[in-house]
Design a protein around this nucleic acid. Sequence first.
DNA 1: AGTCTACATTATAATTATTCTAAACTGTTG
DNA 2: CAACAGTTTAGAATAATTATAATGTAGACT
Lengths: 142, 142
Amino acid sequence: MLKNAEFVDKLRSSGLRPTKQRLKICEVLFNREKTFHFTINDLAKNISNQLNEKISLATVYNTVHAFKDKGYLKEISINSDKSYFDTNITNHHHFFDEDTNQLIDCNNEDIEEVRVKKNITEKKIKSVEVLIKVASDNQNQN
Amino acid sequence: MLKNAEFVDKLRSSGLRPTKQRLKICEVLFNREKTFHFTINDLAKNISNQLNEKISLATVYNTVHAFKDKGYLKEISINSDKSYFDTNITNHHHFFDEDTNQLIDCNNEDIEEVRVKKNITEKKIKSVEVLIKVASDNQNQN
DNA sequence: AGTCTACATTATAATTATTCTAAACTGTTG
DNA sequence: CAACAGTTTAGAATAATTATAATGTAGACT
Ligand SMILES: [Mn+2]
Ligand SMILES: [Mn+2]
Ligand SMILES: [Zn+2]
Ligand SMILES: [Zn+2]
């Protein structure tokens, strides 16, 4: 539940100019109790609903990617149709309901910590995330 | 290392007509020692290289999806740009190298079994998969 | 407060992965 | 071999995303 002035600071501190479009998007994304998942299209619709003025779709894309690059959002890939974004930037896992295309956060208590015993690569591990796909029993997998 | 006649049986037994395109794709995908990951585009290029005749891109899409539906392939979503497919249909996890966009199988010994303590949904769990993203240290996450 | 400049926004076009369409073709069955 | 259903195909259509290039504006410096 941040206020406008706080968003201005947040943006400034990460080198992003606090334009009115970015502030509006901050408000829609971060001025809430709970984190949530969204697609670009969700967000664009959401904005044009609760707003008289519209924000260009290109700007929504630019802003979401800028926020992601700054670490304010995470991108989550479930299928190749579209990207999901997450305002919960902590390390966490997901359930994905294949019937409804709904993405649900796992509480850390729901899954035992994943232990990587051996990193086969030479490189640094950036994230370890579990995706649990669920569906009605009569559904075919994947 | 299956032979043509075996592919014919395999296709027949799953209700797919063993057309020459499907058999060629079987050969490219399954006539190997090791499983591997590919994109539709990889596969299409691969085919047109080692083949005088071409297979239409639409047919490659159709066939790959048919094989996936029959359980001969798995689809893996790393990013929303394109789909990766996997000839390794066993339950397994992946490393993804963000620098090179390479997908690497985890051996089951590399990760401790993931235990889902609580299924928050009412539905049946279809899959539980871990994706470990790696990159050079100076790379930015996600 | 006015000017300047780099950064942002916008409408629109371009790109890319994927799916659709409808006509031509072919594997199978009788 | 004839007939039919399933398959392939080229090309068009769709949809998500990115690029372009003209216009606008936040912030700095007078
Ligand atoms: Mn798909
Ligand atoms: Mn992306
Ligand atoms: Zn989440
Ligand atoms: Zn794999």
